[in-house]
Write a protein that binds this DNA or RNA. Structure first.
Length: 316
DNA sequence: AAGAAAGTCAACCGCCCACGT
DNA sequence: AACGTGGGCGGTTGACTTTCT
């Protein structure tokens, strides 16, 4: 570990005393001793007034650094480990509503920090926007999230709930049959599901943060390389519009798979959304109803068809 | 086996705003 | 009103790990 001692320049508005205090401040990764010092001080004196806290605690850190370390790592209610399927779904939904308002999104994911959610978005979601060669804020990408990723996430939530007592292969079967109107054709999807379902343990990286192999968003869009390599986008999934009347029977509201608090938060968020007039994905108060609007799926299918026609025309 | 590339995440930076004086 | 200060926020960096070739 490289524990650097760095001369830190003056922040805006810093006075002469602070200039002296700011000299020889530590930067970089926190040591166990520093963590203990900070936790101990906050336990006795509480948080806030971070600059004076840093001084009084004897930490050679900026107040900001102390605050960040406390909020993102040391706080007792910080949840570490897998970002669950439900949390991923919530992040996608809330980001569609609020954009990069990470702290606001984090308020709806108890124990998660804005930094963690931001990192999740940048490393997992934006990566796939790149693969799609489209802007993360584009309508195409948002439609893809809404019509492809989110339904598939819900499917996986359902599969995880139903498959908690079933074998991996049964879970795959469940994945394939749970929605007869949206059948993944790309075998990579199923292979991925087999691989991931059979991998019961989570991979843990060096930072101690677990990334669930089952819940990772990547699994929901392994067909994107096809899209970006000019393979017919219809291969991503099929929608049998003629049998759309079966949808109501075959689909279950995803809300029921959220834990109670999250469901309430979603409802609150939906109410909040209703008060906003900006165009968003969910034009109503009921998240599940809108998520599972088959007419929307049909709409996207038409969009994809149009896109393909345009692409073909361009090629010709 | 080794180097390159990609992925991950803690930590930092700079801007901004609220509040006190 | 103007200024100083603390703190919150989103964007970015870079160290480290994992995966790929």
């Amino acid at each position: 570990m490289d524990h650097r001692h760095v001369k830190v320049g003056l922040s805006r508005g810093a006075n002469k005393n602070e200039e002296e205090d700011n000299m020889d401040l530590r930067r970089g990764p926190w040591t166990v001793e520093e963590d203990f010092t900070l936790m101990n001080y906050i336990a006795h004196h509480g948080e806030g007034r971070w600059n004076s806290l840093a001084r009084c605690a004897g930490l050679k850190r900026t107040g900001k650094s102390c605050r960040l370390r406390w909020l993102n790592y040391l706080r007792p209610d910080v949840r570490r480990g897998n970002i669950t399927l439900e949390e991923q779904l919530l992040i996608l939904e809330l980001h569609s509503r609020w954009g990069n308002r990470w702290s606001k999104i984090a308020q709806h994911l108890p124990g998660r920090t804005d930094n963690e959610i931001k990192n999740y978005w940048r490393t997992r979601v934006q990566k796939h926007a790149k693969q799609l060669k489209c802007d993360v804020n584009s309508k195409q990408f948002k439609d893809t999230m809404r019509y492809l990723w989110m339904p598939r996430l819900v499917e996986r939530i359902q599969a995880a709930a139903a498959g908690s007592t079933s074998t991996a292969s049964e879970q795959v079967l469940h994945h394939q049959t749970i929605n007869p109107n949206m059948v993944p054709i790309d075998h990579n999807i199923n292979n991925t599901a087999v691989t991931n379902s059979s991998t019961a343990t989570s991979s843990e990286n060096s930072y101690g943060t677990q990334v669930s192999p089952v819940s990772d968003l990547t699994d929901c869009c392994y067909n994107y390389p096809q899209v970006s390599s000019n393979v017919n986008q219809q291969d991503c999934f099929q929608v049998n519009h003629q049998s759309s009347t079966q949808i109501g029977e075959s689909l279950t509201s995803p809300t029921g798979y959220f834990h109670h608090a999250t469901a309430l938060e979603l409802q609150a968020a939906a109410m909040d959304h209703q008060q906003n007039t900006s165009t968003q994905w969910m034009d109503g108060g009921n998240f599940s109803d809108n998520l599972w609007n088959i007419e929307d799926m049909w709409f996207l299918q038409q969009q994809l068809n149009n896109n393909n026609n345009n692409n073909n025309n361009n090629v010709i």
